[in-house]
Design a protein around this nucleic acid. Structure first.
Lengths: 101, 101
DNA sequence: TGACAATATATCCAATTGGATATATTATTT
DNA sequence: AAATAATATATCCAATTGGATATATTGTCA
């Protein structure tokens, strides 16, 4: 009988690794950075602002906004910075603990 | 005609001051600290954990949890720490920009 | 009340993050 | 294409925050 080729998708592999706590932490870490990056970029663009424009309103610099929006800088932004950015875009920063997916 | 006594509530005073950007920032700052403190404490208690117990799971110390829950330490916790705490309590940390009230 | 557990407070240092600067890369406009 | 605007990347330092330790305070139970 011919053996079935087992196809292991990336999704499967990640799912397995997520049982590893250290890996899970880093994974959530990166996910958060990516989510924040997207939230800020889309809110800024919808407001029709350049990075420099938003930076000025939020009391920071273009470099900091670029760094945050890039998602490739592996530093997690501070709530302090996020809050200033939210306010500058007339949003309120919300933080909550949700039921885990 | 007798002049009406004008009553200025704390709420009124704050509302007025909120037009001041610097004040508003500090106000939101403190509000966030208080909110986070309450979220963590209530989630921890509902999970039936002591500060030390939660700390162990989140890879930190009792002191850090106490500091965060007290709300009197004026440092804003990092997202990194909040995320570890959320995970330890089987929650997912959510961050969003909401329409300002 | 005394013993023990839980929480809170203070101080100091190490690690992390924002800010500043310089500069590179990419888009847009003329 | 050239000029300009917008975004991205790298490095270094100052400011902020977590961690460690010691200790105080408060709560619980025998």
């Amino acid at each position: 009988m011919k053996k079935e080729t087992k196809r292991v998708t990336l999704r499967d592999a990640i799912k397995k690794e997520l049982k590893n706590s250290e890996f899970k932490f880093r994974f959530e870490h990166e996910k958060a950075i990516g989510q924040i990056a997207r939230i800020v970029r889309s809110a800024r663009q919808r407001a029709g602002l350049t990075q420099a424009g938003l930076a000025r309103r939020a009391g920071t610099s273009q470099v900091v906004i670029a760094r945050l929006e890039s998602g490739t800088d592996h530093r997690i932004p501070s709530l302090d910075l996020l809050q200033r950015i939210a306010q500058a875009l007339h949003f309120q920063l919300m933080i909550s603990f949700d039921m885990a997916a």
